[in-house]
Computed example of a mutant assay.
Amino acid sequence: MDIYDVLLRDFPFLLKGLGVAIVLLAALLAIGFVLGMCICLLQLYGPRTRLVQWPLVVYERVFRGIPIIIMLFIFFYGLAGIYDISAFAAAVLAMGLRSAAYQSQIFRSAFQSIPSGQMMASRAMGMSKAKAIRYILFPQAARHAIGPWTNEFSSQIKETSLAYVIGVVELTRQAHYIITSTQGNVLIVFAVVALLYFILNRAGNSALYAFERKLAVPGFEK
């Protein structure tokens, strides 16, 4: 059978693998966003004690300093002896916790770009620290963070392809199945896979850029 006929026949499996990659991406980014924001706020506005700050610094540096493929092996094979965890769940945890370390620094830079006088002015008006963060600082920091956050989005799209090493049947592993069944045709199959990743990346970035423009306040960025 011709390789193009095989690709046409098996293209739904590639789309299924792409769907798994998208779900994995959404899950890890959600974990990264929530945990990363918590780490950022604790680092900037939490207690300045070593008991609070040192674990946050250690967490951020460890998860940013270890290659993601090693983290995948640790979470899947390491946790397997303690808890019966699926390959997908291990990938979500490993990539989500690592993304949180990066996102925490994205949000931290965004909050630090806001003049410190705004917090003092908010407190002087009688607002609590939590309300000042929620209503005054966060809306501004969110606008500043979207640009750098698109880089994290693009990076995580590409890193989801590494989940195949622990058995997640996403786009890359589906491509391997097709290559095995056709006994070759590596270039053509992975060219299709590359095109699918590129389309997903461009679509996501375009949506984020549009969201950034929608939130922009005329003259504010300048």
Results as ranks from 00 to 15, higher is better:
A130V: 02
A203W: 08
G117S: 03
L35W: 06
M119K: 11
Y197M: 00
R202H: 14
V169M: 09
V165W: 12
A80K: 13
R61Y: 08
L162Y: 07
S122K: 00
G32W: 00
I157W: 12
A80F: 13
L25C: 09
F76W: 05
G19D: 02
L195D: 08
Y59S: 04
A91S: 14
M125Y: 11
P12R: 00
R123M: 14
L18A: 10
F76Y: 14
D5M: 01
G219K: 09
S128M: 03
E170F: 03
E221N: 15
V6L: 04
L137F: 10
S155P: 01
T172R: 05
Q53M: 13
Q103V: 14
P12Q: 00
S86Q: 05
A101E: 07
L18T: 03
V217C: 09
Y177G: 02
L15I: 10
L14S: 07
Y102C: 07
Q140M: 10
R98Y: 08
A110Y: 02
A210H: 06
F220S: 13
R213H: 14
L18W: 00
Q118F: 14
A142C: 10
Q156E: 09
L28C: 07
C38S: 13
Q103D: 04
Q156C: 06
M95A: 08
G65K: 03
T150V: 11
D5Y: 00
F138N: 06
L171D: 02
L7G: 02
S161I: 14
T49L: 11
L137C: 11
A130Q: 00
A132E: 04
I136M: 01
V58A: 15
S104A: 15
V92I: 08
A30K: 00
A100Q: 01
Y77W: 05
V58H: 14
F76A: 03
A145P: 06
R48S: 10
Q140P: 09
I70S: 05
E60I: 01
R173P: 05
M37D: 01
H176L: 15
Y135K: 15
P47E: 07
G46R: 04
K131S: 13
L35D: 04
F220L: 15
F11P: 01
V58P: 12
I106Y: 08
V168H: 04
Q105C: 10
L162F: 11
G219R: 05
F63E: 13
M95G: 03
Q183G: 10
D2F: 07
L51A: 13
L35A: 10
A91C: 09
R202N: 13
S161A: 15
A91N: 07
A26R: 01
F211K: 09
M125D: 09
A163W: 01
L8R: 07
F33W: 06
V58S: 15
A26F: 10
E170N: 02
A94S: 15
L14C: 09
V34H: 07
I136D: 02
M119P: 07
L196E: 05
S128I: 04
Y102V: 12
V6S: 05
R50P: 10
G204E: 00
L41A: 03
F138S: 10
S109F: 04
A142S: 10
K214E: 12
I136P: 02
I166Q: 04
T180E: 14
S104I: 06
N201I: 03
A30L: 12
Y59A: 07
N151R: 05
G147I: 04
N185P: 00
G65H: 08
S181M: 06
A89S: 13
I69W: 02
Q105D: 13
T160M: 03
